[in-house]
Amino acid sequence: MGKGGRVLCIITPYALTIASLVCIIIVGLGCTNSASSTLNDLYFFRANLQNLTTTSSTKSTVSQALSKAGVTVSDGDISAALGQVQKQFDVKDFYNIGLWGYCEGNVNGDNYNISDCSKPKAEFWFNPIEVWNLQETGVENGLPDGMRKSLNLYKGVSKWMFIAYIVAFVATIVELVVGVFAICSRWGSCVTTLVSGVAFFFTAAASATATAMFATVTAAFNENLEKYGLHGSMGKNIYATTWLAVAFSLGAALFWMLSTCCCSGRSPYNHKGSSPRAITAEKAPYTYERLGPQANLNTAPYNTAYPSAPPPSQNRTNAYEPFRHV
Rank of each mutant, 00 (worst) to 15 (best):
V174Y: 01
F202Y: 01
N237Y: 09
A240N: 13
A164M: 14
A204H: 04
C263T: 07
E223M: 06
G232W: 07
C262K: 15
V170P: 00
G229A: 04
S207K: 02
F201Y: 06
I163K: 13
L194C: 11
A212S: 08
G235V: 05
N222A: 02
L258P: 07
V177T: 04
S185N: 10
I166R: 05
A245V: 06
L194G: 08
T211F: 11
L250T: 15
T209N: 04
L225R: 05
V195H: 02
L225T: 04
T193F: 08
T211Q: 01
G229W: 01
T218Y: 00
V191W: 06
G179M: 10
A219E: 15
C190S: 10
W187I: 14
F169Q: 05
F169L: 10
Y165M: 10
I238M: 05
S267P: 00
L194Q: 00
N224L: 08
T209M: 14
A199R: 03
I166V: 11
A219N: 14
V198S: 02
K236L: 11
F181C: 08
F200M: 01
F255Q: 06
H271L: 12
S196Y: 01
T209D: 07
A247Q: 01
L225D: 09
M257C: 15
V191T: 08
A208F: 10
T241V: 13
S264E: 11
S249L: 13
T172D: 06
